[in-house]
C-alpha cells in the first residue's frame, strides 16, 4: 500500500522499521533453518554425520545418500505411485469441481437446491473413521489404487469456490452459446473451462500437493501392500522406526545390516527422504501464490 508521507520520518519510525526487519529476518531463519539443516545432513557423509554438530554446511560433502536411496526399489516405485496419485487425483477432482460448480451456478437448474444442500452439508459432517473403513472394505477398495482417487474426487469446498467464480462470468456468453445450440457438455468444455483457467490451475495444484502429501489413507487402506505404497508413507515409516529406536544413534545403528553400516544411517536416510519428498512441492508452490489470496477470499469470508 502506497502511503504518502507528508511529515518527516521520525526516529520512532526508523526504530520501528529496523525492529520490524529484524523480526522478519528472524522469522525467515526460523522457517528455513530446519529445512536447510535437513539438506545439510542429506548431503553429508552418513558416518561423519554421527559425530553431530552439523549446522550450516556439510563437512564431508557427498551425493551417496541420494544415489543409494533413489536406487532403492521401494522408493522408486513409491514415487511412481505418488506421481500417479497426484496426476489422476487432481484431474478427477478438477473435472468434478468444474462440472458441479457450473451446475450450481445455474439458478434455473432443477437439482440446484438439492445439490446445494447435499454438497454443503458434507463439509460439516462425516460418518467417521470406522464406518468409512468398512465401507472401503465392502466396496473392495482395500489394497486398490482407486481408494486414493474416488473418495477424493468430490470436494465441496473447491466446488463452492468455483461456483462463485463461474457465477461472476458474463451470463451472455452461456446464453448465446445455448441459443446457437451448444450442448451443456460443449458449454462446460469450450467456454467454462477456458474462462476459469486461473481458478482451475490453482485447484489442480492444490489437490496435487494434497495427494502427494497424504499418507494416512495409504497406511489405513494399503498398509500391507508394498506395490501401492507412496513416498509420503515410506517417509512416515522411516521416521517412525528411527523415532521408536530411542535417540541413541548407536542403538539405531545396530539395526542396520553390518555390510551397509558404513554407507547408510537412519539419520541420513531420514534427511534424504525428507528432501526428496519436499523438493517437488518447493518447485510448485511459488506459482500458486498469485491465486490463493483470491481463492481464499472468494470461498471464505468475503462471500
Amino acid at each position: 500500500m502506497k502511503v504518502f508521507h507528508l511529515h518527516r520520518r521520525t526516529t520512532g519510525d526508523v526504530v520501528f522499521d529496523i525492529i520490524n526487519t529484524i523480526i522478519m529476518i528472524f522469522l525467515i531463519i526460523v522457517t528455513l533453518y530446519p529445512f536447510w539443516n535437513t539438506l545439510v545432513y542429506s548431503l553429508n557423509s552418513p558416518v561423519d554425520s554421527l559425530r553431530g554438530g552439523l549446522y550450516l554446511w556439510p563437512r564431508q560433502f557427498t551425493f551417496s545418500n541420494y544415489s543409494l536411496i533413489l536406487s532403492e526399489e521401494n522408493v522408486y516405485w513409491a514415487s511412481v505411485v505418488s506421481i500417479l496419485r497426484a496426476l489422476t487425483g487432481s484431474v478427477a477432482n478438477v473435472l468434478c469441481t468444474v462440472i458441479i460448480g457450473y451446475a450450481l451456478s445455474q439458478k434455473s437448474f432443477v437439482l440446484n437446491k438439492f445439490y446445494s444442500y447435499l454438497f454443503v452439508f458434507s463439509m460439516y459432517f462425516s460418518g467417521g473413521l470406522i464406518p468409512g473403513y468398512f465401507l472401503m472394505r465392502d466396496l473392495h477398495l482395500i489394497n486398490n489404487f482407486l481408494v486414493y482417487i474416488l473418495p477424493a474426487t468430490v470436494s465441496a469446498w473447491n466446488i463452492m469456490v468455483v461456483r462463485s467464480y463461474i457465477s461472476e462470468l458474463p451470463k451472455g456468453l452461456i446464453e448465446s452459446a445455448k441459443i446457437d445450440g451448444a450442448s451443456e457438455f460443449r458449454i462446460i468444455f469450450s467456454i467454462i473451462f477456458p474462462l476459469s483457467m486461473p481458478v482451475v490451475a490453482c485447484i489442480l495444484l492444490f489437490v496435487a500437493v494434497g495427494q502427494w502429501n497424504s499418507w494416512f489413507d495409504t497406511m489405513l487402506y494399503c498398509g500391507n501392500n508394498q506395490s501401492l505404497s507412496t513416498l509420503a508413507y515410506e517417509l512416515q515409516k522411516v521416521l517412525q522406526t528411527s523415532q521408536s529406536l530411542s535417540t541413541q544413534s548407536s542403538q539405531a545403528q545396530a539395526l542396520i545390516p553390518a555390510a551397509m553400516r558404513n554407507i547408510v544411517t537412519p539419520q541420513s536416510v531420514r534427511a534424504t527422504m525428507t528432501i526428496i519428498t519436499i523438493v517437488p512441492i518447493m518447485c510448485v508452490y511459488p506459482f500458486l501464490q498469485k491465486y490463493f489470496v483470491n481463492g481464499l477470499t472468494l470461498g471464505g469470508v468475503k462471500e
Partner: peptide, 11 residues
C-alpha cells in the same frame, strides 16, 4: 458424494 459421505452414516 453420497457413496463416500452419506453411506458411511449407515455404519
Amino acid at each position: 458424494l453420497i457413496l463416500f459421505n452419506y453411506v458411511p452414516l449407515w455404519g
